[in-house]
């Protein structure tokens, strides 16, 4: 079980996240939603210790997360990656084994088998020798999903995995999520999707600096909650998103 307690994050004296409290249970698929700039990525990054927290703690089965980082897999936002980097799909997935292999060692046969299986699962095995810049957006996203799988973690954090992907990748991703849930793995997915797509989650976290709602999709997706989330961001973009949401 992942527990986030009283997590607050400041960025140059401005509060970005305030007193976040949340729990993710094994086997759960949790969606993290909220307007642009609500702090969704920051929340994931601060849970993972990539952004320093002002206060609060993150526990994994009662232990500080820092001590069990091997149980965590993280898929960063696509925009964080330089897709022109000279590397093949195979070697991106092989990164999952960096820590398990240990210093000075090359990945062994077991590691290669794990990487092979992960690429097969996301249907990217045939393209494994392609340089990543030669892949489509969806294929690139699947390579990163394979990397997370090859880490054989218990908790998966995915930052906007559904952005700019094709139908096939979406299908592969949803199938993989279901399989992971069946294996009692937990997933926290930060997402920009709206409407019916949100019903696929077991639970939704509505975020805008603070956690505004934390419940099953039907309870969270009310007009009142949406207004509360979006009225705090005076950007026109937020209002667009709101109307988009209400149409669905």
């Amino acid at each position: 079980m992942l527990e986030v307690q009283h997590l607050s994050v400041n960025y140059r004296q401005t509060s970005v996240l305030e007193d976040i409290h949340l729990v993710v249970h094994p086997g759960e698929l949790v969606g993290l939603i909220g307007p642009n700039g609500a702090g969704k990525s920051t929340l994931i990054q601060s849970i993972l210790g990539l952004v320093p927290a002002h206060q609060g703690q993150v526990l994994l089965d009662g232990q500080p997360l820092r001590r069990c980082q091997h149980r965590i897999a993280y898929v960063p936002q696509r925009s964080h990656i330089d897709w022109d980097y000279p590397i093949t799909a195979w070697n991106v997935v092989m990164m999952a084994q960096t820590r398990a292999a240990g210093w000075f060692r090359r990945p062994n046969r077991d590691a290669r088998r794990t990487v092979w299986a992960a690429l097969e699962r996301v249907e990217m095995l045939e393209l494994r020798h392609r340089q990543i810049r030669e892949l489509s957006g969806g294929q690139q996203q699947r390579v990163f999903l394979a990397r997370a799988l090859a880490q054989q973690a218990d908790f998966f954090f995915l930052d906007e995995p559904f952005t700019g992907i094709d139908k096939k990748t979406e299908a592969v991703m949803l199938r993989t999520f279901t399989e992971l849930q069946a294996q009692n793995k937990a997933l926290l997915v930060c997402s920009h999707e709206w409407g019916d797509a949100l019903r696929r989650y077991d639970r939704l976290l509505l975020l805008n600096r603070t956690l505004l709602a934390d419940d099953v999709p039907d309870t969270v997706m009310t007009l009142e909650n949406m207004q509360r989330a979006y009225s705090q961001t005076p950007s026109a973009n937020g209002i667009d998103r709101l109307s988009e949401f209400l149409v669905c």
């Binding site: 980082q69 091997h70 292999a101 990397r147």
Partner: peptide
């Protein structure tokens, strides 16, 4: 040569490398 795989991970995806605990 000795630190090749760590340097590869770090220069490609520093956040991912940090999240893994490197």
């Amino acid at each position: 040569k000795l630190f090749y795989k760590e340097l590869l991970f770090f220069t490609f995806d520093p956040l991912g490398a940090q999240a893994m605990g490197l």
